[in-house]
Design a protein around this nucleic acid. Structure first.
Length: 848
RNA sequence: GGGCGUUUAGCUCAGUCGGUAGAGCACCUGCCUUACAAGCAGGGGGUCGGCGGUUCGAGCCCGCCAGCGCCCACCA
């Protein structure tokens, strides 16, 4: 207990109370409880890419309000925080921050000192040096995030923090992978995959996005092999003509039916290719007949696979045309090809169009169109398709039975808001491939796999060497498989490491297993898994949420949590989606400085669950006003009520009973709302009641409360004020932890965040009738209205008030007569039963 | 192309049983009133996107249409 300050203020509350919570372990998880008494939250580990924007604060604050509510309901909240530092965003940031590039063939340089600023030339460094810089930078970023989270008052247990590149995450990821491998759920395949030519890595279906790009139809003249004429074929990618292995039309298309089985000769290159039929060919598109290249798009891959066509790959992993011309083209064709060898797709297209124009094999002018093109979501150039050996994980993309099970799990999961489930369903229904989990990158969890090398020095990918689970995590590029010596690395008869790392989602899809201890801490695991809540953003339903369910299904046969709460998207003040490229990113820290954490939290919790919300300084201002009002109202209530106990049986006055009964309804509604993760509704109802409490109830009982202590009605006012304050503070606590803790400390010991959530039943005092408070407030408002429109002070006296109303309402008014007269400075209050309700107010004659 | 959501005061949004449209901000008029002038009390302001239907009665239920946002889709 600290006592009531003379001049309450929000200044310094954040520093004081976040320090207090840390010192007292207020949010420390105590595992010594049954599963049913624990509430475990699978926190989204934010990507620590160095930038903090409002989206980083929005969802986390909403989740924190739920964590705080559950804690006050008596649950032992398991609320860890993680940092997603693993993966491409960190690599990219390191490259830009230091001006370096990872070259895996370089040896480690123990004396390497990173430049302070990027130099003119990019510095090539070894993989271990690169990883050291990654570790260093994420440590700085994570410290900045933690500072913000603490300032925002997130009630996480900081002793449970994890990172997606950390020891536990690597051990868990590798263990899960080895088990997937043992059960046949993980497999490798040498197959065409979507490929980012800048990052030089394969990407998964979940990381794709379509972008509308300009392009053009080019009508190419293919020559019938029997010299009976030409076939015109539209393509947007004439540069891939050299990779053409067939042309395709719909089997029902009468125009081309006579040609099926015959051959055409490609322009420029003179390759003979068959005319084939496939139902995916669209008679409406272009000229109705398409060229199949290896590979121009994903449809080409389907045609190539299903029609068992040969491979004529022309693009390398760097996105440039290979130096050697593909098979099957004429010597003249090889000459033509030599001009595009080594060029990018864009450069090659220009050259090929010129060549086609010169040869007369381009019909008319290219016709510009815009069309959707597949991009890596973090990439800047269109994806290509190249063939490479990759690791895959079964996710229902090629397996109807697993897909059906995953759909069923989606129905078993409780979604909030419920309509978000359709995103999961539609994603799953559109899946067409297993999950490609290998990435040709560096800062990630390595695959715990080596391969034998035969006597001729070839890696034998069928002969896997894997570690024991107890030895995890391993780095196969420095650790040795059992039975081998380091000197045998990359030697004939020896072994070689799998060079790849896992997709970052392959690790973050295991956050429930990482935080709950899984194999390493079975006691914790039993008490926290399956978890209670997965809060997250809508944009990662197809990745994080879906992948996590896949892993839990494969590993545990069921859901990783019972509930998911999907938050909305943060829009900038002009209601545009915030993004770095738009330059409209608002960062939270300056706003915390200006309005305070409680105000920022108030804004975040004003956003309805799952609803996109604009950054709105007006709402933050309102939040700040509310926090100040809480301070002042509390100061008054606690000051006027002396040492009154919060004892319901001392509430002796009808108006007081009435107010408490009305408050009970608010408690009920706030409780129901929070139980369904609707923090916003709880806040709105609490706030509405609080303002009416300040404007009406406090004004009505003020003069009575100032009365002689000991009098029953005086005591009733004091007790009621305290009960209501204590109740309202606790309902505000999940959203505004600082100001509620501050006020609580004025007269209570211990943290409000460990206090009990209010119970509505305790407020339902016998004989309480909500009508009394309601009618009293309405009559008082009428009195105020007359004073205000008459432009006199609210303190000015009223000679007479006549209230005409129904008997029931007049009886209610009668019960609060003294308080209404005192609050309105009314000399004479008269009532009259009537069918048309009215309030007449006669101001006293101004004698001044 | 399929789907989800949304459309209410100038702005941001509530409106959960179908029963005479609400809040905050902004604007205007007042008030130093013994918690709060970073305050308080009032006021003006609406064809609830459009059309049709169900109903005694529709912001709410049904159908169609439109705008906006998003998700999914085989994109030659």
């Amino acid at each position: 207990m600290a006592g009531i300050p003379d001049k309450p203020s929000l200044d310094g509350l954040e520093a004081r109370w976040s320090g207090f919570w840390e010192d007292h372990g207020t949010y420390r998880f105590d595992r010594g409880h049954e599963r049913s008494e624990i509430f475990s939250i699978d926190t989204p580990p934010p990507t620590v890419s160095g930038s903090l924007h409002m989206g980083s604060a929005f969802g986390y604050v909403q989740t924190d309000s739920i964590a705080r509510y559950q804690r006050m309901r008596g649950r032992h909240v398991f609320y860890p925080m993680g940092w997603d530092d693993n993966g491409l965003p960190t690599e990219r940031r390191v490259q830009n921050y230091f001006g370096v590039r990872c070259e895996p063939h370089l040896p480690y340089d123990p004396g390497f000192v990173a430049p302070e600023k990027p130099g003119k030339e990019t510095v090539s460094i070894s993989r271990p040096n690169f990883l050291e810089l990654c570790e260093r930078l994420v440590a700085e970023d994570e410290a900045a995030f933690e500072e913000l989270w603490r300032r925002l008052g997130l009630s996480v247990d900081w002793t449970l923090t994890y990172t997606t590149i950390g020891h536990s995450a690597r051990r868990t990821s590798q263990r899960a992978f080895l088990r997937n491998l043992a059960r046949g759920e993980a497999y490798q395949a040498d197959a065409p995959t979507l490929w980012d030519v800048d990052f030089r890595t394969a990407v998964a279906q979940a990381e794709l996005e379509d972008r509308e790009m300009p392009g053009a139809y080019h009508a190419l003249k293919f020559h019938k092999a029997d010299a009976s004429g030409d076939v015109l074929i539209d393509t947007t990618r004439p540069e891939l003509l050299a990779a053409c292995v067939a042309v395709v039309a719909h089997p029902d298309d009468a125009r081309f039916q006579p040609l099926f089985g015959s051959e055409v000769i490609t322009p420029l290159y003179g390759a003979r290719v068959p005319i084939v039929a496939h139902h995916l060919a669209d008679p409406e598109k272009g000229t109705g007949i398409a060229m199949i290249c290896t590979f121009g798009d994903t449809t080409d891959v389907v045609w190539w696979r299903e029609l068992q066509l040969p491979m004529r790959a022309v693009l390398g992993t760097d996105g440039r045309f290979k130096s050697d011309a593909p098979e099957g083209i004429t010597p003249d064709g090889e000459t033509a090809y030599a001009e595009i060898a080594g060029r990018t797709a864009k450069q090659a297209q220009k050259i090929v169009v010129e060549q086609l124009t010169a040869s007369g094999e381009l019909e008319g002018e290219p016709r510009p169109i815009t069309h959707p093109v597949k991009f890596f979501e973090k990439g800047e150039r269109p994806l290509e398709i190249v063939t490479s050996r990759q690791w895959y994980l079964r996710n229902g993309g090629r397996d109807a039975e697993l897909r059906a099970e995953l759909l069923a799990l989606g129905r078993e999961l409780h979604w909030s808001p419920s309509n978000m489930r359709v995103r999961y369903d539609s994603w799953l229904e559109g899946l067409n491939a297993d999950w490609l989990v290998s990435r040709q990158r560096y800062f990630g969890v390595p695959f715990p796999v080596w391969y034998r090398i035969d006597a001729d020095g070839n890696s034998i990918y069928d002969e896997l060497l894997v570690p024991q689970e107890t030895d995890l995590p391993v780095d196969p590029s420095t650790d040795c498989p059992a039975g081998f010596e380091p000197a045998q690395r990359d030697q004939p008869g020896g072994f070689t490491a799998d060079p790849d790392v896992m997709d970052t989602w392959a690790t973050s899809s295991l956050t429930p297993q990482i935080v709950t201890g899984w194999v390493d801490d079975p006691d914790l695991f039993a008490r926290t898994f399956p978890m209670d809540l997965r809060p997250q953003g809508p944009e990662i339903i197809r990745t994080w949420l879906f992948d996590t369910i896949v892993r839990a299904r494969l590993e545990h046969g069921g859901l990783p949590w019972t509930d998911t709460a999907i938050n909305g998207w943060v829009l900038d003040p002009d209601r545009k989606k915030m993004s770095k490229s738009r330059g409209n990113v608002v960062t939270p820290m300056p706003l915390v400085e200006e309005y305070g954490s409680d105000a920022l939290r108030y804004w975040a919790c004003n956003g309805r669950p799952g609803v996109d919300t604009a950054v709105d300084f007006g709402i933050m201002k309102v939040g700040r006003k509310l926090a100040i009002k809480v301070l002042n109202a509390s100061k008054f209530v606690l000051g006027v009520s002396g040492d009154a106990a919060e004892a319901v049986d001392e509430v002796a006055t009808d108006l007081d009973r009435s107010m408490l009964v009305a408050l009970a309804d608010v408690v009920d509604e706030a409780t129901r709302s929070f139980d369904s993760f609707d923090y916003a509704r709880s806040l709105e109802r609490t706030e509405r009641f609080f303002w009416s409490f300040c404007d009406d109830y406090v004004e009505l009982v003020k003069s009575r409360a100032y009365g002689v202590a000991g009098d029953a009605s005086v005591r009733s006012a004091a007790v009621s004020l305290r009960i209501a304050l204590s109740t309202l503070l606790r309902m505000f606590a999940p959203v505004m932890p600082y100001v509620s803790e501050e006020v609580w400390s004025w007269w209570r010991d211990g943290s409000i965040h460990r206090a009990e959530w209010p119970a509505a039943e305790a407020l339902r005092v016998r004989g309480g009738d909500p009508l009394v408070y309601q009618v009293a407030a309405e009559v008082l408002a009428e009195v105020r209205k007359v004073k205000s429109t008459s432009k006199v002070s609210l303190a000015s006296p009223v000679a007479r008030v006549l209230v005409v109303d129904t008997p029931a309402r007049l009886a209610a008014l009668e019960a609060a007569r003294a308080d209404v007269c005192d609050a309105g400075k009314v000399a004479k209050l008269e009532v009259e039963v009537g069918t048309v309700a009215s309030v007449q107010v006669e101001l006293a004659v101004n004698e001044s």
